Computed example of a mutant assay.
Amino acid sequence: MLTNPAVVLLNLLFPATWLLLLLECAAVGVEGLVYLQCARRIRRPFLFSLWANGCSFGLGLVIGGIL
């Protein structure tokens, strides 16, 4: 949840598909590192981060009427 506002803001300021994908990948990496350091019970923190961000991205597409 901490990376989402930054990704959305940067996407609004610089709308480009390649940049959005890069920002989403960066968010997955940053959140994976946070989960790795702070949530010891999560077995695969980067996979969990990828899954959570994928769900968030997909929901955003549904709400935005793209899917």
Rank of each mutant, 00 (worst) to 15 (best):
Leu2Cys: 09
Thr3Phe: 07
Thr3Lys: 05
Asn4Gly: 06
Asn4Glu: 14
Asn4Ser: 13
Asn4Val: 15
Asn4Met: 12
Asn4Cys: 09
Pro5Arg: 05
Ala6Asn: 03
Ala6Arg: 07
Val7Thr: 05
Val7Gly: 03
Val8Cys: 08
Leu9Cys: 10
Leu9Glu: 13
Leu10Cys: 03
Leu10Asp: 02
Leu10Lys: 01
Leu10Val: 02
Leu10Gly: 01
Asn11Asp: 12
Asn11Lys: 09
Asn11Tyr: 09
Leu12Glu: 15
Leu12His: 12
Leu13Phe: 08
Leu13Asp: 06
Leu13His: 08
Phe14Thr: 09
Phe14Trp: 13
Phe14Leu: 14
Pro15Gly: 06
Pro15Lys: 04
Ala16His: 12
Thr17Gln: 12
Thr17Val: 10
Trp18Thr: 08
Leu20Thr: 14
Leu20Phe: 13
Leu20Ser: 14
Leu21Tyr: 14
Leu21Ser: 09
Leu21Ala: 09
Leu22Gln: 03
Leu23Met: 03
Leu23Tyr: 01
Glu24Ser: 05
Cys25Asn: 11
Ala26His: 00
Ala26Ile: 05
Ala26Phe: 03
Ala27Pro: 01
Val28Cys: 05
Val28Asp: 01
Val28Leu: 06
Gly29Pro: 00
Gly29His: 02
Val30Phe: 08
Val30Met: 07
Glu31Pro: 00
Glu31Phe: 00
Gly32Met: 01
Gly32Arg: 00
Leu33Asp: 04
Leu33Asn: 05
Val34Phe: 04
Tyr35Trp: 03
Leu36Gly: 07
Gln37Ser: 06
Cys38Leu: 14
Cys38Tyr: 09
Ala39Glu: 12
Ala39His: 10
Arg40Trp: 08
Arg40Pro: 03
Arg40Gly: 14
Arg40Leu: 11
Arg41Met: 10
Arg41Thr: 14
Ile42Trp: 00
Arg43Lys: 12
Arg43Ala: 15
Arg43Ser: 12
Arg44Gln: 15
Pro45Thr: 03
Pro45Met: 05
Pro45Ala: 06
Pro45Gln: 04
Phe46Lys: 00
Phe46Gly: 01
Leu47Val: 14
Leu47Ala: 15
Phe48Gly: 01
Ser49Phe: 01
Ser49Val: 03
Trp51Leu: 15
Trp51Arg: 14
Trp51Phe: 15
Ala52Tyr: 05
Ala52Asn: 09
Asn53His: 12
Gly54Glu: 07
Gly54Lys: 02
Gly54Asp: 07
Gly54Gln: 04
Ser56Tyr: 11
Phe57Ser: 11
Gly58Arg: 06
Gly58Ile: 10
Gly58Trp: 11
Gly58Val: 11
Gly58Phe: 15
Leu59Ala: 15
Leu59Asp: 07
Gly60Val: 09
Gly60Pro: 04
Gly60Cys: 09
Leu61His: 07
Ile63Asn: 08
Gly64Ser: 08
Gly64Glu: 12
Gly64Asp: 12
Gly65Ile: 08
Gly65Lys: 05
Ile66Tyr: 11
Ile66Lys: 09
Ile66Phe: 09
Ile66Asp: 08
Ile66Cys: 04
Leu67Phe: 10
Leu67Gly: 07
Leu67Arg: 06
